[in-house]
Amino acid sequence: MVKITLFIVLLSSFLNASSFEENCLSCHGNDFKFNMMMKKYTQKYSSEKRIKEAIFNYLKEPTVEKSVLPYEYINRFGPKEKTTLDDKTLREMIDIYYDKFNIQSKIY
């Protein structure tokens, strides 16, 4: 039973990792500062629910106002393009992103 559970967990994390790589890292690459982005979102939206909602809203309809990046930066490079992912996949990716990079779990 324990082996089966362990297997399911490992498989699910592998699948998660692979889908995150496929849907996110394929464009952003490994150099993307996910930590820094999470700090910006946390500083602005505080709770898990609000952070996830803000990321979702931005990725669905990116605007300068919704961006958490400094104004000078976003003004120069402009907001990113709309996501091509469907809502369900997008939310799953945001969940994975939050689980991997949220600040709360890193406080000790």
Binding site: K39, S46, S47, R50, I107, Y108
Partner: peptide
């Protein structure tokens, strides 16, 4: 701590007092 840490965040502890922080939805953070 927020500005200077990246991977791990050491919660500040003081001699004179204890503390706790909560998010905007009043959930305990630490």
């Amino acid at each position: 701590v927020h500005e200077n840490s990246d991977e791990k965040y050491e919660y500040p502890r003081f001699k004179n007092f204890k503390s706790a922080i909560y998010d905007i939805d009043k959930n305990l953070i630490f």
